[in-house]
Design a protein around this nucleic acid. Structure first.
Lengths: 130, 130
DNA sequence: GTGGGGCTTCCCAATATGGGAAGGTCAAGG
DNA sequence: CCTTGACCTTCCCATATTGGGAAGCCCCAC
């Protein structure tokens, strides 16, 4: 049985986050006689799973569903796939939005002298009346 | 002189946000005898400026600097340009990060049957040991 | 038995936006 | 004159995720 520090080192999830995930019901922890949390291999595997899902940008509520599906041996892979593709759509929408901002701003900046003079199309765009 | 509701309608910034921007010192408001906030054309122009900057993804701290530069008639456009291009870099980094997640996940999903069977490469990836 | 490192809980911080309650103000209309 | 409704005020709370830090307990090594 590992302490929270060991579980953190093994799973790559900070102790702080492990406690947080427990507080929102994503992970379980046994308690030793001294009230310290203890973790077995299963819990560490859950933590690693969460870390991987987070690395793919899944919000914690999605992670919760993924964990449920993971534990469900009778899951339909269709459900996992739907969850994943919905998330992909969300990611791509956000990426598109950010890239659109970047492109607009880059165009504006391209026309800015960028010297000591005050006039600047970026500022001009921001102060437009529409 | 406009009320906060009128300033909101004219600027496209919600009354809630106008109050918030005031609380963090981005905007100023005069008070009428009844303690209601009042706004002139200048303040509405500031609010519009903020909305445009936010639409380009500038965080409020950047907006604060942009407002200072806007008000400074002796500004060097180089400063505005640097701020903008730094922000563009941030936006593109985030967009790239999101797109990388989307691409990985899309590849995983492409190999998922997506039927009633439980086995799924997405889940398999998440439970990997590394 | 003391020091240090790890553990506990609890509060606060950041981001930006909004919901909603409780109460003040004002104009219109019965 | 009084009510009603629309607008304003302030204050608290919520969202999502991660971290910093304090105060205090636990245990091992020296």
């Amino acid at each position: 049985m590992k302490s929270i520090g060991e579980a953190a080192a093994e799973s790559g999830v900070s102790a702080k986050m492990i406690r947080h995930y427990e507080s929102i019901g994503l992970v379980d922890a046994q308690r030793a006689a001294n009230n310290y949390r203890t973790y077995g291999k299963d819990e560490v595997a859950v933590l690693r799973f969460i870390r991987h899902a987070r690395a793919l940008g899944f919000p914690l509520e999605d992670v919760r569903r993924l964990l449920d599906l993971w534990r469900d041996r009778n899951r339909a892979s269709a459900e996992v796939k739907r969850l994943a593709l919905d998330h992909v759509a969300t990611l791509e929408a956000k990426a598109d939005s950010l890239r659109a901002m970047a492109t607009s701003l880059r165009h504006l900046a391209a026309h800015c002298h960028g010297d000591a003079r005050p006039d600047c199309p970026i500022i001009a765009e921001l102060e437009k009346k529409d």
